[in-house]
């Protein structure tokens, strides 16, 4: 099984959720909603491009839109490999948490 880092996992999920609206500006907004933390654009670019390299994401250019001053967007979609990995993770996670109630440390 392939291991993803937490941030990679979160990114892939966000891209999946945003569908055709998955470009950097939206991805960052969405991540902020989930985690409550704003990540830098620079970091985001690096992570996204790394995921593209690994084959979990595909990127294509949209048509130019007026709100970006006529510039194109770089839209990301997840690949089947990513779906597999994510499903794996979900399975592992479920197994790992199974049977554990609220976490407490016994004194």
């Amino acid at each position: 099984m392939k291991i993803l880092s937490r941030s990679e996992e979160l990114l892939l999920l966000t891209v999946y959720r945003l569908k055709s609206e998955a470009y950097t500006f939206n991805i960052r907004g969405n991540l902020k909603e989930i985690t409550g933390k704003a990540s830098g654009y620079g970091a985001l670019y690096v992570l996204l491009e790394r995921l593209v390299e690994k084959g979990y994401l595909k990127a294509y250019m949209s048509d130019p839109t007026p709100e970006r001053g006529g510039k194109r967007k770089r839209i990301y979609t997840i690949t089947t490999e990513a779906v597999e990995v994510l499903n794996d993770i979900r399975k592992v996670e479920r197994l790992a948490w199974d049977g554990i109630g609220e976490l407490k440390i016994d004194k």
Partner: peptide
């Protein structure tokens, strides 16, 4: 839509690493 000043955009375009394809400028503008 409000636009960033032209000179700053040119500056950013010049110093941005080549692999970004300069498309991230659109993000910055948004």
């Amino acid at each position: 839509p409000k636009k960033p000043p032209k000179f700053a955009e040119y500056l950013l375009r010049w110093i941005l690493p080549d692999y970004t394809d300069k498309d991230s400028l659109g993000d910055y503008e948004e």
